[in-house]
């Protein structure tokens, strides 16, 4: 067993370069952190459409709706079952209307809402279940839709 070293022989590593490197890594991760992914359900398998291109700047408010193949709507990972979907969409439409009134005070209930609805549905979702969500959005004034798809097949 080694005994306590005397003050003359104590080895003190220089931690400054290590700390520099760690701070650089932290800065990197802080810059690339994307809070938008919290709204996405990454378990969904999106369809592959060759002409789908990423749109960098979607104007206005966004409403992200994840729909799995059983037709369950997921918003920030909170599942919303079939019967509750119209009420949820109506609530979102109300919120969108209030937000839109800040820019355009003349907007009335029933007018087209400026919010873009982003639909992320599993590729096996039957149209019947998808249409339940889309038609509910249309009834509440949403007109702008962005259907999400991959433009090439992802590796499993």
């Amino acid at each position: 067993m080694s005994g306590t070293l005397s003050s003359e022989n104590r080895a003190e590593p220089n931690l400054t370069p290590l700390l520099d490197m760690v701070f650089q890594l932290i800065t990197f991760f802080m810059l690339v952190v994307n809070f938008k992914t919290a709204a996405l359900d990454l378990n969904l398998r999106l369809p592959v459409v060759g002409s789908a291109r990423p749109v960098e700047s979607l104007a206005g408010d966004l409403l992200v709706l994840n729909i799995d193949k059983e037709g369950t709507l997921k918003v920030y990972n909170n599942p919303i079952k079939g019967m509750d979907i119209p009420a949820f969409i109506a609530g979102e439409a109300q919120a969108s209307l209030l937000a839109a009134r800040r820019n355009n005070p003349k907007i009335q209930p029933g007018d087209d809402l400026p919010t873009t609805v982003i639909v992320r549905a599993d590729k096996e979702t039957p149209f019947k279940l998808l249409n339940r969500v889309v038609s509910s959005c249309q009834k509440n004034g949403f007109r702008n839709f962005s259907l999400k798809a991959l433009n090439r097949k992802q590796e499993p």
Binding site: T37, S51, P54, I118, F145, S146, K148, A149, L150, N151
Partner: peptide, 12 residues
């Protein structure tokens, strides 16, 4: 990392 997803923009 967020997946690179494409958009099909529609007015419905």
């Amino acid at each position: 990392p967020s997946p690179v997803e494409g958009d099909v923009m529609l007015r419905l």
